[in-house]
Write a protein that binds this DNA or RNA. Structure first.
Lengths: 121, 121
DNA sequence: TTGGCCGGTTACTTAAAGGTAACAGGTTAC
DNA sequence: GTAACCTGTTACCTTTAAGTAACCGGCCAA
């Protein structure tokens, strides 16, 4: 996967630019999951059950490379790893909040379905 | 392609829900392009040069099926087709505005900040 | 001796997205 | 009579994302 660093200079559209960082099926969900607290790998995985551990590992690595979160590894047995948003990652909060709001108002609550919103938080 | 209509009832996370609608490489850019005015097919294409006409057609069709924009075809020679956001599409404005803002502040204007660790200075 | 704990990695496969190039159609301009 | 105009469509191919399943280390409890 190409991180933003190698592409940055080619980008002119701010939307395209930001999609380089948080595009993909899972990244916004992962960031949303971490928005208020640091979490362990297994915690994130449990909160996003449809996301395989392999893909989660990949996405976390890319997010770390792009400076959106930090990975802290504790050399314990069994191992423990914590992921936490950086300041840059936290600065995405308004975007994620608007996304959440829109999703709730226009999809979760509106459609024919009594579908209780279950957040990843 | 699966439109949101067929998936809506399975979705619990608002972020996931909204990614069903505007996920993908180009949809946010297209919506951003249409945010303030209706545009012709060729206009959109010209404004997003890296997006092929084939993919643009596909994405526009999906966005129309999901109720985010309308397609108005004029039976003229040569043909003219105009795309315009619906109210639902316009309601995405806050999301797109935050994305634009973030992209400008954190990538366009600060090209070396996101990966400061790799910087040599 | 086996299996669970946790956070992965590896190898393989499938599904989805996206790209290129050629062509269509009806009228007008050359 | 041919090319351009505009908005596609079609056929075909490549790239990327994502999914599955098995396995790893190192310690501990049964």
């Amino acid at each position: 996967m190409v991180t933003i660093a190698s592409k940055k200079r080619e980008i002119k559209c701010p939307i395209t630019a930001m999609l380089q960082l948080i595009g993909g099926k899972w990244k916004p969900v992962i960031l949303y999951c971490l928005r208020s607290e640091k979490r362990r790998f297994g915690e994130i995985s449990a909160r996003i059950p449809d996301l395989s551990r392999k893909v989660l590992t990949e996405q976390l690595k890319e997010l770390e490379e792009d400076g959106l979160l930090t990975r802290q590894q504790f050399n314990e047995i069994p191992p423990r790893v914590e992921y936490e948003l950086t300041e840059l990652g936290k600065s995405l909060a308004p975007v994620l909040n608007e996304m959440e709001k829109w999703g709730i108002e226009n999809i979760i609550e509106k459609p024919n379905k009594a579908n209780a919103a279950q957040s990843t938080d």
